[in-house]
Design a protein around this nucleic acid. Structure first.
Lengths: 131, 131
DNA sequence: GCTCACGTTGACGTTAACGTAAAGGTAATT
DNA sequence: AATTACCTTTACGTTAACGTCAACGTGAGC
């Protein structure tokens, strides 16, 4: 079965369904230059690589990244240049993004604590109701 | 010194400076009903409680929360009603928000891994340049 | 009085991130 | 042929989250 050698592709609605987003959203990301599907005539054909990028964009979205920030991430993971200047800049960007993630981790920790406290108060109020 | 008994207050610019935001932003949050400063004539007077809420809003912002979500959080931490129905709803909301934070933690973990990988590739490229 | 710093309200503008709709094309199925 | 499902482009609209600006008031200090 030579299907095993065929590059796996996805239609726009495949991806929209998979990720529970609209086709409009996907086209918007394309306009933003973040993904570049192939074409069969006018019809967009998405590769697995496009799909991975889309996953990355949506993950960034869940973490509150702007699209510009997610685009920057994509470029970090697939740098288009290997000269020393750019590699130094890339390393710096990686560190900056790391710092931001650390801040988010700290924020999450605080928020989790606050939710625990809120839950404790909630359950105390419930217990008081049952007495 | 009877100052120790005086409730600590802040002006709008105090808070703006402290948190590196504009007074416009603070007023916007007030319009959204998230903080309610007292007044001395027309002038807003912010309590420590307002300040804590502001911190909470900004933390949520760093985590990508909409203002509506942050508002919901504020309400969770200071519920206005103690009846069983509302307490059950509150407990549910707490759990939902917990799940969302867990998702964000997972997302962060993946992203950190990706950054590590990117860094490894970056340093390999640097080493190749030096040879 | 003048200037400066801080504060106010009101209102329009900007940007990001899509949503919605219209008009049209292409297969595949009945 | 008609219908259905999927696809396209174009373009305007909506919402969220402020930014910017104008006009004004109030102290405090020179």
């Amino acid at each position: 079965m030579s299907d095993l050698n065929v590059k796996r592709t996805h239609s726009i609605s495949d991806l929209a369904r998979e990720f529970d987003i609209t086709t409009r959203t996907i086209r918007f990301y394309e306009e933003a230059g973040m993904i570049t599907p192939e074409r069969d005539g006018q019809t967009r054909i998405y590769t697995d690589q496009d799909r991975v990028k889309l996953k990355l964009i949506l993950r960034g979205k869940r973490l509150g990244f702007s699209l510009a920030e997610s685009r920057e991430l994509i470029e970090m993971y697939d740098p288009s240049s290997d000269n020393a200047h750019q590699l130094n800049a890339l390393q710096q960007k990686i560190n900056e993004r790391r710092d931001a993630l650390k801040q988010q981790l700290a924020d999450i920790e605080i928020m989790q604590k606050e939710l625990d406290d809120a839950e404790t108060r909630c359950q105390a109020a419930m217990a008081a109701l049952n007495n």
